[in-house]
Design a protein around this nucleic acid. Sequence first.
DNA 1: GAAATTATTTAGATTTGTCTAACTTTTATT
DNA 2: AATAAAAGTTAGACAAATCTAAATAATTTC
Lengths: 219, 219
Amino acid sequence: MNLSVAEENYIKSIYKLEEGQESVTTTGLAYELDTKPASVTDMAKKLRDKKLIDYEKYQGISLTADGKKAALHIIRRHRLWECFLVDKLSFSWEEVHEIAEELEHIRSEKLINRLSDFLGNPTIDPHGDPIPDAQGRLGKQRTQISLDQARTKRLEVTAVSDKSNALLEFLTAKGIRLGTHLEVIERYEFDNSIEIKIRNQPAFTISEQVSKNIMVRPV
Amino acid sequence: MNLSVAEENYIKSIYKLEEGQESVTTTGLAYELDTKPASVTDMAKKLRDKKLIDYEKYQGISLTADGKKAALHIIRRHRLWECFLVDKLSFSWEEVHEIAEELEHIRSEKLINRLSDFLGNPTIDPHGDPIPDAQGRLGKQRTQISLDQARTKRLEVTAVSDKSNALLEFLTAKGIRLGTHLEVIERYEFDNSIEIKIRNQPAFTISEQVSKNIMVRPV
DNA sequence: GAAATTATTTAGATTTGTCTAACTTTTATT
DNA sequence: AATAAAAGTTAGACAAATCTAAATAATTTC
Ligand SMILES: [Mn+2]
Ligand SMILES: [Mn+2]
Ligand SMILES: [Mn+2]
Ligand SMILES: [Mn+2]
């Protein structure tokens, strides 16, 4: 199956929406891809013809087994390139998503497997997301929850859900990276903001919007 | 100036043909790009509108200064990616052209300059071709001539003109690489074939077609 | 220098991916 | 249940890149 760049981007976005439990709607996918609902309907028909999605009009979209497999291969490429950019070319984690968005469409099995070897076959990308293997399999992920739901005090940052520049730059500024250990000092019920402390640095407060997008595990 | 993949491929091919002294004709460019003359005429109008080429109907095509600059930037990207594939991912020189043909279109100044640094700012690619700098300037090339025209006996291979799989695999099989030192034993006038010797290995004969595509310098 | 051949351009079609505007279906509200 | 609002689809258009077939220009051959 040889997919166009546009088709690959759709498949990847559908996977992302499905992953977030949301049922995939025409409008939601249009928003995700920064396009119009009419365009989504058109593409949905095409992807259905290629048996990559199940789609009946007015009934929403879901990936078939083939579609899911395709998605995982694109995600593998995306995340491996992100690793390359960060580990080898010293890009920061907020810069890589955009470039990987293009690199992920370079089609060569050999290239991507060599790249993986060159990087030491990493299993998570610079944002803490797991990298599928050459067969498109995801290793079982470590249990992680979002910081706003964590109920223990001492936590380690394992991933970031939102990859926007805005959030990633904010986290960098605050000294929050993958692997950062933090301690919850206080939770304020009023606005669900959280006061946290990193090592010996002075404590500071982060909003619910931020804490929802930081994934952590107890430590 | 934001160019499409198709436009970039045209610009690069025009540069290549101009470089080879040939005047750039519609049919010649169509052949080079594996497309049809009618398509070339269409694209020629578009590139003229963008002021990248001079073109008047029936009068052939030539790059403007802007077009030449654009070409050199694409060539820089192509050749740097080739270096990456060979030096870092251990691809062989006959495998890299095709993949670089896609990678060259990834648009990010920062990416390509970081890549260049990562590779140690190489000045020649795996086929012996010079790599333009970030400003699109080519360093002065070492004087080289094709093996069929060389008049001295002891020579060093500096580049290969033809990048086809067929030739590159042949050269690899014969032990001819960039930097290989060879000695001309005999030139046969009948078919312009040449008998050569590499180090202590037994001499062998290569055809004019091959020797025309091997660039050398006296040593 | 006229005829034949070759090169180039144009006209009209096609595919892919997108859009707007109009229409239809579904869902929410009263 | 009727109506209003939101969500989704269709119809028709457009731009990019390509093609085939037909027309035209340039070049070569005799
Ligand atoms: Mn992409
Ligand atoms: Mn990522
Ligand atoms: Mn290319
Ligand atoms: Mn090369």
